[in-house]
Simulated scan of single mutants.
Amino acid sequence: MFHGTITEELTSHEEWSHYNENIREGQKDFVFVKFNGLHLKSMENLQSCISLRVCIFSNNFITDIHPLQSCIKLIKLDLHGNQIKSLPNTKFWNGLKNLKLLYLHDNGFAKLKNICVLSACPTLIALTMFDCPVSLKKGYRHVLVNSIWPLKALDHHVISDEEIIQNWHLPERFKACNHRLFFNFCPALRKGTTYEEEINNIKHITSKINAILAHNSPVLIVQRWIRGFLVRKNLSPVFFHKKKQQEKIIRGYETKWIYITKGYEDKLLKDLFFKPETNIKGKLAYWKHDKKKLWVNFH
């Protein structure tokens, strides 16, 4: 006879608990989960996924993401289109030391103070918060950019130097949110994507953001020039020494200068490269006095 609900009786049975243990053991090896648009309300089943690297839990009814605290290997976390109104504290985000991409757009965030806890995430480079109430607040972008130090891209645009350095007015090319800095790093989800494809996509997004910054960040451009100058300065003695050695070798060879008619240029080159035994000197004697001449150096 069952004492309580059927579910409680079944789950308390010895065989059922053994089955649950096997499931939990298997979940430890999960590296990729994708639950998009399934009307899910909880993420509790992900607590045992300690090896998880890519988590797509978009377009559901999630309100609490604390179960992800044990997923310390996360690289990409997609939670857009849910009902999340607040984020866990800094301890939660400080534990996600590999997290690079975080998609939180189309949620219920309303306070900037709550979002600033993301500053504890040490490797976060791309974040989306558009279509949230907080994105309508004045200074929203300025606060996030200057709170999350490793951040490089926010809401379809790579962060410009003008947003980071106060009172620095740059030309149009380097201004915030200009077309050169635009990059949609959260495209529509595709069906049937694999873990390898997701990892390759993460690498592509990271490299694309870095490439945009390399060409549109004055600070990085100047740094690149200075590094190049210092490298050339340090290596110049080596090249100077090699150049001297080459000059000594060249002086040891006998140089002969000969005039060649432009009309016979192609034929002469063929003879030089494909018929080394050809009597070049005899042929060149006839071309010596032509108007169009070409210098050739024989060693």
Rank of each mutant, 00 (worst) to 15 (best):
F2D: 03
T7S: 11
E9H: 02
E9I: 02
T11P: 00
S17H: 02
I23P: 00
D29K: 15
F35E: 12
N45D: 10
Q47N: 10
V54N: 05
V54E: 00
S58N: 06
N59H: 12
Q69S: 13
H80D: 02
P88M: 08
T90I: 09
F92V: 10
L101A: 01
D106V: 01
F109E: 05
F109P: 07
A110K: 13
L118R: 04
S119P: 00
A120N: 03
P122A: 15
L127A: 05
K137W: 05
K137Y: 10
G139K: 02
Y140V: 11
N146T: 05
S147W: 01
K152Y: 04
D155P: 03
D161W: 08
I164R: 10
Q166W: 04
Q166F: 06
H169W: 02
L170M: 14
P171I: 00
R173M: 03
K175W: 01
A176D: 14
A176M: 00
N178Q: 15
H179N: 15
F185L: 01
L189V: 09
L189F: 08
R190W: 03
G192I: 02
N201H: 12
I209S: 10
N210E: 07
A211S: 15
L213C: 07
A214Q: 07
H215S: 13
Q223W: 10
R224D: 08
R224G: 03
G228I: 08
F229Q: 11
V231S: 11
N234T: 04
S236V: 08
V238R: 02
H241I: 15
K242A: 10
K244E: 07
Q245V: 15
E247T: 12
I249M: 12
I249D: 10
R251C: 04
G252H: 11
Y253P: 04
E254T: 12
K262T: 15
D266I: 13
F273D: 08
K275W: 04
E277Q: 11
I280S: 11
K281V: 00
N297G: 15
